[in-house]
Design a protein around this nucleic acid. Structure first.
Length: 437
RNA sequence: GGAGAGGUGGCAGAGUGGUCGAAUGCGCUCGACUUGAAAUCGAGUGUACCGAAAGGUACCGUGGGUUCGAAUCCCACCCUCUCCGCCA
């Protein structure tokens, strides 16, 4: 959520920044704001009068006045009169506030000045690449690449048809080494992040609407979520939701910051509006696993923390020896709550291109304000909103896809990345002798 | 799901219609005493909005209501705890 004071006092700057992301007219909001403040002033003045009358009545009665006498009666009448006016102002003010809130909740975050301006993903800017030589080496050793889903089904480690029978399309069942590889990846990633100073969290993965609003999924993106209607509970689309809301409505102390969390959770997305895209394989599923990193930080350090967060995600890919590149997302491609985002894209040889595998964002105070998460510096007056960051570290299913494709061998088997071998207890998946049901 | 109890400031805990944003204790901050510390004593110690300031307004789980006046009375909801049932 944007700061209404900022919108009020620096309208032109906000307008310019928002224009980089789309078409937003702030005038209706400013009109409502002015009206609301005026009504609030009226109401609070009246309230003061009313309190005065109340006090007087109390005083008189305590001094022995007849509670039914004319003196008190007159006061009661004037109290009633004030109350009459108040009863008209109050709902009006409430409505104005609700309208303002409603608009504020639908405005996206302001892009940082360093974010490239652009309309679509075509205008994202490549920042760096890692592992070009691995791509070249792969190309020279294998003439063609099997897709991860053909490979997975051939080896009997994943099954889409049966998953569709059990649930729907866009689900997968992992079998044997497939399931083990997924689990190995989760363990490896979590252990890596814990070593790097993140505290492991296992949060609820059903969350209420307030939580979905706090992190920015609601009210605008209700269509993307799976909802349990009877309970006001949603299946988390990302661990970012429960992690943000862990500290909702809290006032932290400055010395608690930064707080670094990591969490493995399943994630659930309807993928509304993506019919026909990535219909096969592990790339776009309604349910997938993700290890998420999350930071609550001091406003002064959030952009440094974004660099650190991105490096943490990159380290996972480097340890897995998977080629990738880092993109700075342009204003048109960034998520709703982000002020600046780096995407990591992993190399998928069967498609001969890079695909998103991680997204690392600095939301600055956007979620802090929505979820009311503040901190207080000792000796300082007042509170400030914390800055929050989130990053995938990594999307597990997509990592599995990248491993299967990049590590496939001429004999049709897949070599297990060195770092995962101790988790898997094996060096190869689908060795010629292996059988599957 | 059934029966009962309860939700007050960082914590504990008073407060059942009026001057209560809220006693008291603990904690915390600053100061005094001390070579230093402990102990003791003194002062302070919630959040947000409006206002240049003085000051005003709101908040005692949440939302409504009664009243000149609500932490206190009424209604609804949420949450927590205990017992029973069910259950990994």
């Amino acid at each position: 959520m944007l700061d209404i004071k900022l919108i009020r006092n620096q309208t032109a700057q906000v307008q310019t920044a928002l224009a980089k992301r789309g078409d937003y007219d702030l005038q209706p909001l400013l009109d409502l704001d002015a009206k609301q403040r005026q009504v609030e002033k009226q109401r609070s003045d009246l309230q003061a009068q009313s309190n005065e009358v109340g006090k007087l009545v109390g005083q008189k009665i305590r001094q022995g006045a007849d509670p039914a006498g004319d003196d008190v009666k007159a006061l009661r009448a004037s109290g009633n009169e004030i109350k009459q006016t108040l009863s008209e102002l109050e709902p009006h003010e409430r409505e104005l506030k609700a309208n303002i809130e409603e608009i504020l909740l639908t405005l996206p975050n302001l892009p940082d000045d360093s974010v490239p301006v652009g309309k679509s993903e075509a205008e994202n800017v490549e920042i760096r690449r890692w592992g070009d030589e691995l791509i070249a080496a792969g190309r020279s050793s294998l003439p063609t690449y099997e897709t991860h889903y053909d490979l997975g089904e051939r080896l009997g480690i994943m099954n889409f048809e049966r998953a569709a029978k059990v649930a729907q399309s866009r689900f997968v069942t992992l079998i044997g080494a497939g399931a083990a590889l997924e689990r190995a990846l989760i363990s490896f990633m979590l252990e890596r992040h814990v070593k790097a100073g993140y505290t492991e969290i296992m949060p609820p993965i059903l969350v209420n609407s307030e939580s979905m609003t706090g992190s920015g999924q609601l009210p605008k993106f209700a269509e993307d979520g799976f909802k349990c209607d009877r309970d006001d509970l949603w299946l988390t689309p990302t661990a970012e939701v429960p992690l943000t809301n862990l500290h909702r409505d809290e006032i932290l102390t400055a010395d608690q910051l930064p707080i670094n969390y990591c969490a493995y959770t399943p994630c659930f997305r309807r993928e509304a509006g993506s019919y026909g895209r990535d219909t096969r394989g592990l790339i776009r599923l309604h349910q997938f696993n993700k290890v998420e990193m999350y930071k609550f930080v001091h406003p002064n350090s959030s952009f440094d923390e974004l660099e650190a967060l991105t490096r943490d995600a990159e380290d996972v890919l480097q340890q897995l020896q998977l080629p990738y590149r880092v993109l700075a997302l342009c204003t048109g491609d960034m998520g709703f709550g982000a002020s600046k985002t780096y995407d990591l894209e992993v190399w998928l040889p069967s498609a001969d291109k890079y695909r998103e595998i991680s997204s690392c964002s600095n939301c600055v105070d956007f979620q802090g304000r929505r979820a009311n998460i503040r901190f207080k510096a000792s000796g300082q007056k007042g509170t400030q909103y914390v800055h929050t960051l989130n990053g995938s570290g990594l999307a597990v299913g997509r990592t599995m896809a990248a491993i299967l494709e990049n590590y496939q061998q001429a004999d049709g088997s897949v070599r297990v990345p060195d770092i995962l071998q101790k988790y898997m207890g094996t060096e190869t998946i689908g060795a010629p002798s292996s059988e599957s049901p």
